[in-house]
């Protein structure tokens, strides 16, 4: 038991690793901000593509969505990070992470938006158009606000997944939370820094996870 505490909950090691981990957390926050914003925007356009009545727009959008849903994010990240330099395109770890996760998450957010837009009855489109709104106005003022409200739990749960996903950035040695923790582990020969990182993730995400469960229950009632 003492050995376990010493190896996983060593307060001394944790205290020394904390400043380092907080730096990593800042990087995690930056990745999250970039990926969530880009993903929300990219996903929106992908969803519009998937729902377009024009076949030449719809099929490519569906293929892109399924392609990035089928490819593991880590594979995409490695491909961008160590594959593109072969084609003469150098990318920094940060850019690689943002590009890879943007592509991956646009598909996920896109599917969520699509479900939301599909939940709005067809008649609303027609009513909005017949009152003289343009296509873009109809989407912006009538469809999107309702669609987003309908799929808020799914948007939230996907956003939690984005935060968890950023931990993969440690694989391409981008100094985010998990990378910092793993560095601290290898310097101290002690697993407590990773335990501390796990606790930080828990503190950040547990409230959101609870909220998602609350939403689901609300839906059932």
């Amino acid at each position: 038991m003492d050995l376990f505490l010493d190896q996983f909950f060593n307060l001394d090691v944790m205290a020394r690793a904390l400043p380092f981990l907080l730096q990593g957390l800042w990087m995690t926050a930056k990745i999250c901000a970039a990926v969530i914003l880009l993903g929300l925007v990219g996903g929106f356009f992908l969803a519009l593509g998937c729902l377009s009545p024009r076949r030449w727009l719809r099929w490519p959008a569906v293929v892109v969505t399924d392609f990035f849903r089928a490819l593991p994010p880590l594979v995409l990240l490695i491909f961008v990070y160590s594959g593109l330099p072969f084609a003469g395109i150098q990318v920094s770890p940060f850019a690689a992470v943002v590009i890879a996760f943007f592509l991956n998450n646009s598909s996920y957010y896109g599917e969520v938006y699509r479900a939301g837009i599909e939940s709005i009855p067809r008649g609303q489109w027609e009513a909005a158009r017949s009152t003289g709104l343009t296509q873009a106005q109809t989407i912006g003022y009538v469809i999107l606000p309702q669609a987003v409200r309908n799929v808020l739990p799914d948007l939230l749960s996907n956003t939690i997944e984005v935060v968890k996903l950023t931990s993969l950035a440690s694989v391409v040695s981008l100094g985010e939370l998990l990378y910092s923790a793993n560095m601290a582990r290898s310097l101290t020969y002690n697993a407590s820094p990773i335990m501390l990182a796990a606790l930080i993730y828990l503190v950040l995400l547990w409230p959101l996870v609870r909220l998602v469960s609350r939403f689901q229950r609300g839906l059932a009632a």
Partner: peptide
């Protein structure tokens, strides 16, 4: 809750590098 909140890679590293100690 914990299983849904923790990134799997964190737990993988914890198990793989921590448990042998």
């Amino acid at each position: 809750d914990v299983g849904r909140a923790l990134p799997p890679l964190v737990v993988i590293l914890l198990f793989y590098f921590g448990l042998p100690n």
